[in-house]
């Protein structure tokens, strides 16, 4: 635009900074609490916190593709299992430290995410979802027939001894997962508040129109599928040490795929804190139900909650609080 008149000064419109200090501080505070209390409380609470944080990573990763870009991924369990089995394969080869295994899992699952993006270039809506579901099935078949990582028999993983500042290996796992959750949330915030997030929102609304206004649709979509896959894989990497025995049905569990969709939907897919809230609420509820009723009741309750939210509050908890705040203002 060459003919802009100089009298038009740009309006003061502040976009939030892409890096969120409060989240970093909160994450470090949680780590501090875990370090001080971790040795005193029952191990059960550490496991509970681990599971919830694992779901924070999974649902945040899912939301980058599903919430921001509008591509519903049914294959979470596949990416999660890729992370698990990357750790197992590495563990069989050499004693690799956990952070390195997590990075490796992120790379492998990220590449699979990138590949999925390429293979599903022109697939939208339900067709994309079916393709991701198929991907999980294909991956499971591969793992079942790969005897090096245990095949259908499964694989035992020995938890290493506790590492210096930590009282137990479980405490170490919990701190690692907390850091991972913090990184995932920080990445989601950075995406949400940058041009990438705007571009993904445009893709979600109308992919052709997005390209017609200069948004590089394909590149952004590939970025989203890669990041989504990478975070899901990283969430799965410490899992073998957590349960010490992994077989395909537990790594490719239906509960993981369903939860990764249910949590962001219940929390709200529009912002980063929707999936976090959903993971904490639903993860906690499920653990309480497992203890008080039975583990089989879990998925049933998740299903009912999902139906209720999709029909009554399709924008999730985030949407409800926004509407409520809007009414009071």
């Amino acid at each position: 635009m060459t003919a802009l008149s100089p009298s038009l000064s740009p309006p003061a419109r502040r976009l939030p900074k892409p890096f969120s200090w409060p989240v970093l501080v909160a994450g470090l505070a949680i780590v501090a609490v875990e370090m001080t209390l971790g040795a005193q409380v029952s191990e059960y609470y550490l496991l509970l916190a681990y599971i919830i944080l694992q779901y924070v990573v999974l649902s945040t990763g899912w939301n980058i593709l599903g919430g921001y870009a509008g591509y519903v991924n049914f294959g979470t369990a596949g990416f999660f299992a890729v992370g698990c089995y990357t750790t197992i394969a590495l563990e069989k080869l050499a004693a690799v430290p956990l952070p390195l295994a997590i990075l490796a899992a992120g790379v492998v699952a990220g590449l699979i995410g990138l590949g999925t993006g390429y293979l599903t270039l022109r697939l939208r809506g339900v067709f994309f979802s079916i393709a991701t579901l198929a991907l999980a099935v294909v991956l499971q078949t591969l793992i079942v027939n790969w005897s090096f990582v245990g095949g259908s028999r499964g694989a035992y993983v020995m938890r290493p001894d506790a590492i210096a500042p930590f009282a137990s290996y479980v405490q170490y796992l919990l701190v690692v997962m907390t850091v991972l959750a913090m990184v995932a949330v920080l990445a989601a915030i950075a995406i949400e508040r940058s041009w990438i997030g705007m571009g993904l929102a445009a893709i979600r609304d109308d992919e052709l129109a997005a390209e017609a206004s200069g948004v590089p649709g394909l590149r952004l979509k590939l970025l989203a599928t890669t990041l989504c896959g990478a975070f899901m894989g990283m969430a799965g990497a410490p899992f073998p040490y957590f349960i010490t025995y992994v077989d395909p049905p537990s790594a490719f569990s239906l509960a993981i795929a369903v939860n990764a969709i249910a949590m962001p939907l219940i929390g709200g897919t529009a912002t980063w804190w929707g999936p976090v809230l959903g993971a904490v609420l639903l993860g906690f509820t499920q653990q309480v139900l497992t203890v008080t009723i039975s583990s089989a009741a879990n998925l049933l309750i998740v299903g009912i909650l999902l139906v209720v939210f999709v029909t009554v509050a399709p924008t999730g908890v985030v949407g409800i609080t926004r509407a409520w705040r809007g009414r009071r203002a």
Partner: peptide, 24 residues
Amino acid sequence: AIVPEGRRLFPKLTVEENLLLGAF
């Protein structure tokens, strides 16, 4: 630049977001 047939706006984004996306 193109003004597409049928406008093809991003209906669920705000007016300002629609405009800003033009500057991608």
